[in-house]
Amino acid sequence: MTSIAWSLVEVAARLLERNEREAVLGDLVETREGEWEGLLGILGLAVRRQLMLWKNWRPWLASFGLALPCSLLLMGFSLSISQTYQGLINSTLFKGSGIVLGPGCALLLCNVLLLVAWSWTGGFVMGSMSRRTVRVSIALSFAPCVFCLTRFHVESLSRFCLLLFLLPAAWGVRRGLQIARIRLRSAVVLAATITVLTIPAWSSNGSWIPNWALSWPAWYLVATASRSAASKEEKRWRIS
Rank of each mutant, 00 (worst) to 15 (best):
W60A: 03
L101S: 09
K235W: 12
C70E: 02
L16A: 12
L140A: 03
A213F: 01
L16I: 04
A191K: 02
S240I: 03
G34T: 07
A143I: 03
W57Y: 09
V134L: 01
R14D: 15
L167P: 03
L107E: 12
R14F: 12
E233G: 08
S97F: 11
I99V: 15
S156N: 09
G127D: 01
L53K: 14
Y85G: 10
M129I: 07
M75E: 08
E17D: 14
R18I: 15
L61E: 06
G123T: 10
P103D: 12
F160I: 08
M126T: 14
Q178H: 10
S231F: 10
R236I: 10
R132M: 08
R58M: 08
G104E: 13
F124C: 06
G34A: 05
S7P: 00
A229W: 14
S63P: 01
S3I: 13
A201G: 04
S226L: 15
S240K: 11
S71A: 14
P144T: 09
P168I: 05
G87I: 05
G38Q: 02
S91I: 04
V222E: 03
L140D: 05
P200F: 05
L73Y: 05
K95D: 09
A180G: 15
L15K: 13
L39Y: 14
S119R: 03
M126I: 15
R159E: 11
F64M: 09
P69H: 04
I81S: 01
I89H: 08
A187L: 08
S78N: 05
C70I: 01
K55A: 07
E233I: 06
L66Y: 12
S3E: 15
R238N: 11
A218V: 04
V9C: 09
G96I: 05
L72V: 08
G96V: 06
E37T: 11
E35D: 14
P217Y: 04
S203Q: 15
S204L: 15
S231D: 14
G76L: 13
L68A: 02
P103M: 06
N211S: 12
W57C: 00
C161N: 04
S97R: 11
R183F: 05
L108D: 04
R58Q: 13
A62Y: 06
S204D: 13
A23K: 15
Q50P: 00
V136R: 09
I99T: 10
A67P: 01
S119Q: 07
V134A: 02
A170F: 07
F124V: 08
W36P: 01
C161T: 07
T198I: 06
